[in-house]
Amino acid sequence: MTPVHNKILFIGPMGAGKTTAIQTLSDDMAANTEVRNSNRDMYDKATTTVAMDYGAIQLDDEQLVHLYGIPGQKHFEAVWPVIAKGAIGAILLVNASQPDWQNDMLYFLNAFPQLVTSGSLVVAINRGSDQQQLQILELLSQQNLCLPVLLTDPRDRGQLVMTLEILIANLEIETLIHE
């Protein structure tokens, strides 16, 4: 029997809020691999993810939806495909208060081409403005990419749910048109 795919991936640069988002969405305490951040120049926060985040949403019928987060720092790039394997969709988090955030976003789109070409990816900007949301939509269309872009605070469950709803709609349509 082919298993139903049920893994959603959270990607994005350091400090974008992947660990935070998975904590917010998980039914139980999410598991993570946080260690002390020795590179406060890169991003000033106490800890950083070195391998993965893991959380789950329990559905009524005993099924689980697995939430995986990657370590965002670029030197962990070799780990990304390991964590990403089998994911049906992804939320790309970007922190618009970081200096090079637009290029960071493009970097991650390049690193996960499969999720981008199948359209199974939602861009979730945090600490950004309506204006920045429009900028990103414009930037994507100039790259010939057509992806949903939202403003999302990863500490806010309601906003994350909206992001997931869009991903679900995306996956439903993908499933239907490839049936």
Binding site: T33, E34, V50, A51, P71, Q73, V79
Partner: peptide
């Protein structure tokens, strides 16, 4: 070496997580 350093850290991170769980 830089790649190895990152993967060793990931591996240790996973080991810690596995132990804790």
């Amino acid at each position: 070496p830089s790649r190895l350093a990152a993967m060793a850290a990931s591996f240790s991170g996973i080991s810690d997580g596995l132990a804790a769980n």
